[in-house]
Structures are given as C-alpha cells and as structure tokens.
Design a protein around this nucleic acid. Sequence first.
DNA 1: GTAATAAGTTAGAACTATCTAACAAATATA
DNA 2: TATATTTGTTAGATAGTTCTAACTTATTAC
Lengths: 218, 218
Amino acid sequence: MNSLIEENYLKALFNLSNESGEVNVNELSKRLGIKMPTVTSMMKKLAKKKLVHYESYKPLRLTERGKKEASIIIRKHRLTEMFLVQNMGFGWEDVHEIAEQVEHIHAPEFFEKMDELLGYPKLDPHGSPIPDKNGKMEWKQYNKLSECKTGDIMKLAAVIDTTVEFLKFLNSRELRLGLKVKIKSIEPFDRTMIVSYGKRLSETLSYTVCERVLVEKV
Amino acid sequence: MNSLIEENYLKALFNLSNESGEVNVNELSKRLGIKMPTVTSMMKKLAKKKLVHYESYKPLRLTERGKKEASIIIRKHRLTEMFLVQNMGFGWEDVHEIAEQVEHIHAPEFFEKMDELLGYPKLDPHGSPIPDKNGKMEWKQYNKLSECKTGDIMKLAAVIDTTVEFLKFLNSRELRLGLKVKIKSIEPFDRTMIVSYGKRLSETLSYTVCERVLVEKV
DNA sequence: GTAATAAGTTAGAACTATCTAACAAATATA
DNA sequence: TATATTTGTTAGATAGTTCTAACTTATTAC
C-alpha cells in the first residue's frame, strides 16, 4: 500500500511523462512544489519499491508497476470528476480540487459503483480518457486549437488546463466540449484567433487560450 | 487546518464523551489503537490549539471549538453514509469504511451538495443524528432493546454498532430501522429475547444483539 | 574548450506521529 | 493503612517527509 504522498509523486510523474516525454528531477520538483533533494530521496524510495527506475543524473521513468498504480489513481480522479458533474450537478470548473482528494480513497467498490452509475464512461468532463480497471487507457490524438489554420472547422474535444480560472473563462464564452468552432482568421503578430460558433459570430481567443484547447476534425 | 490524524483524535474523543461521559487517556488510547504516551502527547498538542482542555491525570474534555470541529467531521461522515445508501445504492453494512475516509475531505461544497441532493436528512442510515452546518445535533433519547420488557411493542430506531458483521446479521433476520418488534418473552438466564415482527413470528435475539439496537415507543 | 549556469546529490537538521522503557500518581484491594 | 494494580507521564528512540547548505555533475554559452 502506498502512502498519499507516494501516490502524488507517482501521479505527477505519470502525467509529466505523458506531457513531455522525458522527466527529470527538476521538473517533477517544480510540478509538486517540493525541493529537489526531497524528490531525489523519494525517487530512491520508490525505486526500492519497484515503482520507478532510478539512476543518478538520468531521466526518471516509472516501471510497469508504477505506471499501473499511477493509472489507477488517475482513473479514480477522472471517475470522480465525471460523477461530480453528471450525478451531483457540479460545473466542470469545480471538480478538480475535490477529485484531487477523493482519488486517494482506498475503496475499489466505491469507484466501481461510480463507473456503473455513470454507464462506464470513456472520457472525463475535460475530455481526458478514463483508464480501465487494469490501468489501460486510449489516448485519441487530438490537435491543439492553436495549431489549426484559417477556415478549419473543428470540434472541441478536450482541455489541457483544468484550473477554475481557465474553465470559468471558457464558460463565460459558452465554450464547451463537443462544440463546432470555425476559424475565421488568425492574427499573425500574436496568433490570436477570431472564431465563430453557435450564436457567436465573432469571438477573439488568445494564443494562451487556443494552446489549452484540444480539437478534432468534424 | 487540522491534520487527518488530529481529526481522528477529535472524533474519537467526541464519540467517547457522548457514549460514556468522562473520557480518560486509557480509553481513548484503546479506541484509537494507539499507545498511551502517544495519546498524552497529542492531547498536549491539541490543548495548545485550544481544541481540548488538558490537565495531567484529569479526564479529557473537548473545548467548544473542539466539539464543533469534531461535529463537522461527524456531519461529513454521516452525510456520506446517507449519500452512499440513498444515492449510490450501497447497503447500510458497506458504508462505514468508505465514510471513514470521505469524512476527511476538505470541500464544504461537496458535503453541502450531498445534503441538498438528500433533502437535508436528520438521520443517517444507522439512525444516528446528522449535525447541522454549525455542528449542532439533536439526540433523541432512545432505549436499548435489551432494556425493554415482555409484551412491549417497539420500533427499531437506530443501531449502536455499525460493523459489517453486525449489520449483516440484522440483514439476515430482515431487521431494519422503522420495523415494529413485539417482545414475546425474555429468557431470565441469559436475557435472550424471543420476538416477532413482519412475517417472522418467533425469532431469537441474543443479549449481545439487543444491547446494540435502539428502539422507541410505537 | 573553458567558464558560467543549471541540474542533481549528499549530509545534516527539523517536525510529526509513533513506539518502548522507566518512573509516578491514582485507584482498588486486602 | 499498606500494598498491588491500573492509569498516566517523561525521556529517548525510530520512521517518514520535508528543508537548507554545500558540493558534484551535466549542460550551455562564449
């Protein structure tokens, strides 16, 4: 059984690996807000437990067991987010912080029940895939909205950023997953996009925003 | 903000005070499965935080603040149990362990939402009162079934023991809260009761069982 | 290719929550 | 009351997670 603290290291390492390939002590340290020496010593501890491969000065890698345990925590997080939205009426902007705590509950039957009540969803409210009981998950290859070109019509598929501030911004523009967005023009100087969707015929989205939104072909 | 560990001491002290009046280090130590010296030092720590009144060799007492914080943890526990039963379809025997973990989640809006979805219940699935947001709760004065006499017709109101084993025993005899039970006779030697209820005209309940069931006049 | 900078490690300290061993106080018993 | 038992405290040790300071290795820039 891993402690809550170990679980947070595993999860952060798993997420960072998926985001940026190779992960080093410095990155993990920044992600967790924990100083590097502490991270080093935890990596040694997790290496002893066969959850990470650790060699001095080398990039950090989860073992297969480490990946599986991390996936299960992420499964619990995403099922919880989905449950909070679908079955309890929370907005997608309010669920991350709660799920961050609920994900550490050790009670498989609790999460199985959520899964069942939700009808075995494949995606969470932010469009991220929910790993199955064995920790397997399928990542669809989405593109960033910021990488699309003028004239493209794309469907919003997922968000990368799940902070309250970002999601409230999307709410304020009535932007939600599944929506079809047409790119009317792109400002070359700062890569701001002018887009249209639903009843909104001309909305301006900064590059910062477009970078955090994943889309797929309609 | 109190740690999970501090919360468990507060809750145990609160529950023991309600059960048996004066609480000493030894009792609290046994309840928590933690050795006495550890309990002593935690009491000193909680006294510094103005959550308990502590004097060497004197009984332990929660301060008003301590009582309030303990009540809020118990509120979260009982709302969770009720939610698991009413909104997620768990049996009353399966919810204690899960609630034991969920009660430590710091997210008032999560528990407010449960309360709302449940329609502001006053009692949990085991018949215990749910404290309000300010930590206030009303204890109805129930009697133990074991203290009733032959001929009494009583309604099952609450259970004292929430372990899986005990509740499964009650399930196996179709005993649930709200049920009317008539005491047909009491064996003087071991205080075993012969009772009737529903379609069951003659069931035998040991003193151990009757002691754990609270009842009220019909 | 050396110097400067960034990243990583080691050593040692602090804090929390736990324990055991030894002693002290309070309570029960004879 | 004197003794035995129970209860409670003090002191010191251990394990987990964190930190800072000092040092080492790797990478970047000139």
